[in-house]
Amino acid sequence: MYHIEKSIKNIINYSFLPDTSNIIHIGYGIDSNYIRCCATSIISFCKNNPQENFHFYIMISNLDEISKNKFHLLAKQNSINITIYEIDISFFKQLPSRLAFPLPTYFRFILPSILKDLDKVFYIDADVICINNASEFFNTKLNTNIIAAVPDTIDTATNRNNDLGLKNHIYFNAGVIIINIKKWNLLNIFDKLIKEILTDPKKFYMLDQDALNLILTQKIAYLPKKFNYFNGFYPWHKDSITNKEIILLHFTSSPKPWDLGWEVSSMSNDYNRDLYKTYENQTPWKNASPVYPKHYRRLRIYSQDLYHHGYYLSSIKYYILYLLTKLKK
């Protein structure tokens, strides 16, 4: 059995909750690329649920002093608790990772061990924002289930179930999960997940999400998609759900709302175009510049999107940058 205490390098507490009763516990696992959106996710919960007492937990390998000060200010200004766990990733380096899924994606595995004295925690991906009151979500009953989660898209579910050999299983997205901490730890879910991944790493294309589906099958309470609505995958204009019904909006696709290219992307529409920025501008990260594409293919897509919107000179500029960046690879 692995003892998570070995991986915790530092714990930082910013405590400003005036009332410590009936606390909602929400956790995030991030790297440095997701700091600003994690803060945005936090503020979105606060603004849409002013009646709740929140304690947020952030697991990250390294956090710079500027960001620490900003999280301190975020906690103080909104009368919430924020606990930051700086994690040594040495143990996780033995696990597979991809560009879209860096090693901190596994941090959700250790959250129940860190918060072992609690009954329930809400794990939220940092690219999820709360856009309406979430009382119904917070009041979810897990009963005998280990987690609650939202089913993934049909195509993803079919492909992943086939590759994992799962039968009679509804494949879920791990971006929003409610964890029964006592049951998770009692059944040693962390150890089972790690053992399964190390046995056949190539099988887990979706990494931690695949492993969670494999280990937790038949122990899941399924939630309606309004609690993890996939921006870009569900066509809003063809869907029966309305903007007012969506509780948690998950920016699963690229570009993200904080990326260069978001405004002209097909992922962006009249409703969601400025939605993320509205919340980010209520954090100490307000007015932050868009993030430049980290992969040359994103430059090509950005160039194409600019062209389709009639920005021809800018399109040419970024296509040239795409070619130059590609040549360096």
Rank of each mutant, 00 (worst) to 15 (best):
M1T: 10
Y2V: 13
I4D: 02
S7E: 13
I8P: 02
K9I: 08
K9M: 10
N10A: 07
F16T: 01
L17I: 04
I24E: 08
I26L: 09
G27W: 00
I30A: 04
I30G: 02
Y34E: 10
Y34C: 05
I35G: 01
T40A: 07
S44P: 06
C46I: 14
N48D: 06
P50V: 14
P50F: 14
F56N: 00
I58G: 01
M59F: 04
M59C: 12
L63N: 01
D64M: 06
I66V: 14
N69R: 13
N69W: 05
L74K: 04
Q77G: 01
I80F: 01
I82S: 01
K93G: 04
Q94I: 12
P96V: 10
R98I: 10
A100V: 11
F101A: 10
F107V: 00
F107E: 00
I110P: 00
I114C: 03
L115C: 07
D119T: 09
D119F: 08
F122N: 07
F122L: 11
D127T: 03
V128Y: 03
V128C: 15
I131G: 01
N133R: 11
S135G: 09
F137M: 08
F137P: 00
N139D: 13
T140P: 02
K141H: 12
N143S: 14
T144K: 15
A148W: 03
A149T: 06
V150N: 02
D155I: 12
T158H: 13
N159L: 14
N159Q: 14
L164D: 03
I170V: 13
F172T: 09
N180Y: 05
K182P: 00
W184N: 05
L187A: 09
N188Y: 12
N188I: 08
I189V: 12
F190V: 03
I194V: 15
I194R: 07
K195I: 13
E196P: 00
I197R: 06
L198W: 08
T199P: 00
L207N: 07
A211D: 05
L212C: 09
L212T: 03
N213A: 10
N213D: 05
L216Q: 06
L216M: 10
K219C: 08
I220W: 02
L223N: 06
P224Q: 12
K225W: 01
F227E: 01
F227D: 00
F230M: 02
F230A: 00
G232L: 04
Y234C: 07
W236G: 00
D239L: 04
I241E: 01
N243R: 09
E245T: 02
F251V: 02
P255N: 11
L260F: 09
W262T: 05
S265I: 03
M267K: 06
S268G: 05
N269C: 03
N272T: 03
N272V: 01
L275P: 00
L275C: 02
L275N: 04
N281F: 08
T283S: 08
P284A: 12
A288I: 09
S289E: 15
P293H: 13
R297G: 13
R297T: 13
R298C: 07
I301T: 14
S303L: 10
Q304Y: 12
D305K: 06
H308R: 15
L313I: 14
S314Y: 10
I316W: 11
K317P: 02
K317C: 13
Y319E: 10
I320N: 09
L321R: 15
K329W: 08
